[in-house]
């Protein structure tokens, strides 16, 4: 059976993984077709800035003009969540791919060569892991100035040590396998042994964790934005939109859910995005786990 068929069958066999795939597929479609779903008003300076309809602080309920309503400062919620999908993907994928890349390089060096190299790299990761992650990220963002880019940098700095450690552990295990010894016995160089023989057998746990962690990255980025350390005001970003809604979570006495749309809409998008990646992570585990022999 071909690999693709196998993957497809594993996906379909588990309805939850299929759900994850569908959710992420929908988000991808939203991100790609954002200009069609929520066209940027003409003369607007940047498609990533939410158009606003006035300057009043009070959110306005859904109407024909603003189908999801407007949030604090009359920013259009519908436009914000649709274009916010792009920001979410950007943050998640950039942070995760750089994190995993750093993790792979440092982790394989440490794990394969051991000794002093291992000691140095692992002590550095220990230092990074000794800081509370979110506090360190906040400190970094504050130091280099709040923006989406600094959020990505901060999250990468906070996140890579756990991957370096995870990959190192898996490599320590794989490098003792006979086929690694055999590859060296057949004249392969260290670089070749690492790239061709060790990594392909050691990398899957990290990839699975990465797909599970994408949700966590988005959550952390949202948390930073919520604390006002993220994108500039008015930027399409789910975290920032929840921040706008912070003062409107409870309505006036007698009508506590008056401004529900300002809170719920960006919240639901974050929820489903994280949920989708988590389910997909489980699906990846089913597909990639080498212990599930392909018969």
């Amino acid at each position: 059976m071909s690999d693709w068929k196998f993957m497809a069958r594993q996906l379909v066999k588990n309805p939850l993984s299929l759900a994850g795939l569908v959710i992420i597929a929908i988000f991808i479609i939203i991100a790609i077709f954002a200009p069609l779903i929520a066209p940027t008003p003409e003369g607007h300076r940047s498609p990533y800035m939410i158009p606003r309809d006035g300057y009043s602080a009070t959110p306005q309920p859904p109407s024909e003009e603003h189908i999801f309503g407007t949030t604090q400062g009359q920013y259009d919620i519908f436009y914000g969540v649709i274009w916010g999908t792009r920001s979410a993907f950007r943050v998640a994928l950039v942070v995760m791919s750089i994190t995993v890349l750093i993790g792979i390089v440092l982790g394989s060096l440490a794990g394969y060569f051991g000794g002093v190299i291992d000691e140095v790299i692992m002590r550095v990761t220990d230092i990074f892991l000794a800081f509370p992650a979110l506090i360190l990220a906040m400190a970094i963002v504050s130091a280099i100035g709040p923006s989406l880019k600094s959020v990505m940098i901060a999250l990468t700095v906070v996140w890579w040590p756990s991957y370096a450690r995870l990959i190192r552990g898996d490599i320590l295990q794989v490098r003792e396998e006979d086929y690694v010894e055999a590859a060296r016995g057949l004249g392969a160089s260290s670089a070749r042994v690492i790239v061709r023989h060790v990594l392909p057998n050691a990398i899957y746990p990290s990839l699975i964790m990465a797909s599970l962690d994408i949700g966590a990255v988005v959550l952390s980025a949202a948390a930073l934005s919520f604390l006002g350390l993220g994108a500039p005001e008015g930027y399409c970003d789910w975290g920032q939109m929840t921040e706008f809604a912070r003062n409107w979570m409870v309505g006036p006495p007698g009508d506590p859910f008056k401004y529900w749309y300002a809170v719920i809409t960006p919240g639901v998008f974050i929820l489903f995005f994280v949920l989708g990646w988590n389910l997909l992570g489980d699906a990846f585990r089913d597909i990639f786990d080498p212990r599930l022999a392909r018969r």
């Binding site: 086929y179 055999a182 016995g185 057949l186 004249g187 392969a188 160089s189 057998n201």
Partner: peptide, 27 residues
């Protein structure tokens, strides 16, 4: 070391005890 690599597998090669373990499962 690089001259030695050119000898391993080329002039001198080795068959390991456990054939299952000596083959990389992903290729």
């Amino acid at each position: 070391e690089d001259r030695m690599r050119a000898i391993r597998g080329n002039k001198i090669s080795m068959v390991f005890q456990e054939p299952g373990a000596a083959l990389n499962p992903v290729y």
